[in-house]
Write a protein that binds this DNA or RNA. Structure first.
Lengths: 228, 228
DNA sequence: CGCGAGCTTGACGTTGTTCAACTAGAGTGG
DNA sequence: CCACTCTAGTTGAACAACGTCAAGCTCGCG
């Protein structure tokens, strides 16, 4: 579904990534942008397909997913406001991850070739874009270090802290991820997630009830994350 | 130790990453470059320190290492000819990995601010650089996927195939990595590496004798890598 | 010849996966 | 309104994978 886009100048993107663009330059980008609505579960970007558009997410929570041999691995979870697809544009315009809506989402599709043209003509903009995309990669690498080195207590602690700090900005939140998705994020089986959550619950470090999570003892959780 | 650098125009770097630079531009870069000699074990770039120079490796094999809590994790292994430090320059000029010589190495240090200046003034060059640095990150992520999802047979197979294809370009090679380093690369204990190598040896898939490795049945090894 | 670092080996215990059975809740159709 | 089905979640038991430990080995070097 497509909306009008007359309010681009008020967009959060204007003040952040695009802050070094002139009004004319930003206008050129905005005139090609279109709003989309995604339902929970919709594929926003599809791994291994050609990428023609970036998506600026204005509402909702998404997961970045790598698929190999049928099994999913969640590389990152992110929420509005954020630009999606950056990691794709630097090489061959083939999507490296899939991006899938965890909640209903709104997004604004930005024409990739226009975006690239702007990058070519505005060096500071290019540096902003590069910086953002390497941040994304570094985050992914840090995540994999966690998965590669820690055992499940530590990984689950990592995931909970990440969600609390970066996504829900609260010690108490309602999960948008299923148990299976938590497992794909933490790199273990869903049963292991359930066991670990229950243990943390019984030790009064967190309170779990279905999708409702509350972190009761953040210090202890941070220690578990560190120790592994 | 520092050599003269009159032969920069013959450097492999000139024909690859720097192919889109004019003679003047390349000259500007070369006039600031200096040759260094590293002994096996030397730290070429040090994690978490400020980075003033890129290093173009002209001889030798190196490992990219992430350190956390005393334990090492090898992110990648690379050999000459290759440019080292790219992943660092996109953000805050703080080295994200350490780079350590696995063999005696020669390298050519390139002034980072000159390099950046060239990037700012030559868009195609900037795209070349960006492309190279994202390749590096994608490689790292693929490596971590392997570590995160496969069990030790698959990981060891991955490592052997990587070394055979990308580093030694032969089915038969002499390892520059210790058993501990193989373990840091595959994300498991050194004992597990030894067990797995012996099993592969007993199954006549590889032949191991100390540092000497020969891949006897590449197809079978590739299958093990896929299956996990 | 003796020392030490890296390598090898096997035993053992922990961790985590797999499997199978069961429960709860949501959606569907008669 | 009640079966029926389907999916997600939960539980525990059996098993396999892996790390840790402790002991012994090998080889190069002083």
């Amino acid at each position: 579904m497509i909306f009008d886009n007359k309010k681009c100048v008020e967009c959060h993107l204007r003040d952040t990534l695009c802050k070094c663009l002139s009004d004319n330059e930003f206008e050129a980008l905005a005139s090609y942008s279109r709003l989309y609505v995604y339902k929970k579960g919709d594929v926003i970007l599809d791994q291994d397909t050609k990428c023609f558009e970036l998506v600026y997410l204005t509402k909702g929570v998404v997961k970045f997913v790598l698929n190999n041999d049928g099994r999913e691995l969640i590389v990152a979870v992110d929420k509005a406001q954020t630009l999606i697809g950056l990691a794709n544009i630097l090489n061959e315009d083939i999507n490296y991850f899939s991006v899938i809506a965890l909640t209903d989402c709104n997004g604004c599709a930005i024409n990739l070739s226009k975006f690239k043209m702007l990058m070519m003509n505005n060096k500071s903009f290019m540096f902003e874009v590069m910086s953002l995309s390497t941040q994304m990669f570094r985050g992914a690498i840090n995540n994999f270090i966690s998965v590669a080195r820690k055992q499940s207590n530590g990984r689950v602690a990592d995931v909970l802290i990440y969600l609390s700090d970066k996504i829900y900005n609260s010690r108490k939140f309602v999960l948008d991820l299923s148990r299976q998705e938590l497992a794909d994020f933490a790199g273990c089986s869903k049963e292991q997630i359930i066991h670990t959550l229950r243990n943390l619950n019984n030790d009064n470090i967190i309170k779990v009830s279905g999708k409702n999570i509350e972190i009761l003892d953040f210090e202890k959780l941070a220690t578990i994350s560190k120790v592994g």
